[in-house]
Simulated assay, not measured.
Amino acid sequence: MSAVLDQKYEKLFALLDANGDGVIAEDDFTLMAERVLVAFGEERAAGKGKKYADEMMNYWHALRDRADTDGDGRIDGDEFRRAVRQASDDFDTLIGPLYEAGFHLADRDDDGLVSREEFVAVEQAIGVPADEAGATFDLLTEQGGSLTLDRLMAAATQYYRNEDPAHTERHLLFGAL
Rank of each mutant, 00 (worst) to 15 (best):
M1K: 11
M1E: 07
V4R: 02
V4Q: 09
V4G: 00
L5N: 02
D6I: 05
D6N: 05
K8V: 10
K8E: 03
E10I: 01
K11D: 00
L12Y: 05
F13K: 06
A14Q: 12
L15T: 08
D17P: 03
A18D: 15
D21P: 13
V23F: 12
V23C: 11
I24A: 01
E26I: 07
F29T: 01
F29R: 02
M32G: 12
M32Q: 15
A33D: 03
E34T: 10
E34I: 00
R35Q: 04
R35Y: 01
R35W: 00
V36W: 07
V36M: 04
V36S: 04
L37T: 03
A39Q: 03
F40V: 03
F40D: 09
G41Y: 13
R44P: 00
K50D: 06
K51E: 15
Y52P: 00
Y52M: 10
Y52A: 11
A53D: 03
E55K: 15
M57T: 09
M57N: 01
N58T: 11
N58K: 10
W60M: 00
H61L: 07
H61E: 09
A62S: 15
L63F: 08
R64A: 15
R64I: 00
R64N: 11
T69F: 00
D76F: 03
D76W: 02
D78G: 14
R81Y: 04
R81E: 07
R82D: 14
R82Q: 13
R82K: 14
A83H: 09
A83V: 07
V84D: 03
A87N: 11
S88G: 11
D89S: 12
F91D: 02
D92W: 11
D92K: 12
T93A: 14
T93S: 14
I95T: 14
G96D: 09
G96L: 07
L98F: 12
L98T: 15
E100V: 15
A101V: 12
F103P: 10
A106F: 08
D107L: 04
R108N: 01
D110C: 11
D110G: 08
D110M: 06
D111F: 03
D111C: 06
S115E: 08
S115C: 05
E117W: 05
F119P: 06
A121T: 12
A121V: 02
A121P: 01
E123C: 13
Q124D: 05
I126S: 02
I126G: 00
A130M: 02
D131A: 13
E132P: 00
A135N: 04
T136R: 01
E142I: 01
E142W: 02
Q143V: 00
G144R: 02
S146W: 08
A155Y: 05
A155K: 09
T157N: 10
Q158G: 13
Q158F: 09
Q158L: 14
Y159D: 06
Y159W: 14
Y160G: 06
Y160W: 15
R161W: 01
D164F: 12
P165L: 04
T168V: 14
E169Q: 12
E169H: 13
E169G: 15
H171S: 10
L172C: 06
A176F: 08
A176R: 15
